[in-house]
Amino acid sequence: MSAMAVTQMGWVYGRCTRANHKASTALNTTMPTLGTGWDEPSLYTVKAVLIMDNDGERLYAKYYDDTYPTVKEQKAFEKNIFNKTHRTDSEIALLEGLTVVYKSNIDLYFYVIGSSHENELMLMSVLNCLFDSLSQMLRKNVEKRALLENMEGLFLAVDEIVDGGVILESDPQQVVHRVALRGDDVPLTEQTVTQVLQSAKEQIKWSLLR
C-alpha cells in the first residue's frame, strides 16, 4: 500500500513541478537575449525574402538560414505571415519571433524577414531596394502578371540584392544596372503600346506639317 502511494504521489508531484519547470526554462532561454542584447556582430542580416500573390500563394521564396528547414514549415510560416499582414498596410510586424517588413502593391506582397534583434531599418532598405529595382525593371508596372512574365529578372535581382543572407547591394540603380536585362528582353505591352503611339504621333505630326 505505502509503496504504491510513493509511486502515485511521485507522479502527481512530478507532473505539477514539470509544468513549473518548463515555464522557468522557457524564461531562461529567452533571458540571455535580454542581458547581452546582441548576438555576434555579423553581416548575416536577412533570413528570408518572400513574394506572394493576393491569395497568399508563394511566387518567390528564398530562405537564407535554417530557421525553417523544410518546405512544410516554410509554407506554414508563409501562411501565418500572409494571414497576419494582408489586411493591414502597416509595413512592419513581429511574427514567430522574427521581424517582418513588408509592402504590398496591387496583387503582390513583398516580405523581408530578419531576426528580431536586427536593425529594422536595414531590413527596410533591402525591401525598398527590391521593390524599387523591380519597379524600374517592370516600368512601374509592379503586378503579378508583369512579374511572372519577368521571373528571370526577379531571380537575378534578388541574387544581386542579397547573397546568402548578406546584403550585397542596396541601391536599386546598381541592381538594375547589374541585372542588365536587354531592352528587347522586357516584353511589356506598355512598351509596345507607347512605341506604337509614338510612331503614330510622328506620323500625324508629319501629315499635319505637310
Binding site: A23, S24, L27, T30, E96, G97, S116
Partner: peptide, 11 residues
C-alpha cells in the same frame, strides 16, 4: 520568476 522578457518567444 517574474522577470520581464522580450516579446520574442523563440523557445
Amino acid at each position: 520568476q517574474k522577470t520581464e522578457i522580450t516579446p520574442v518567444a523563440t523557445s
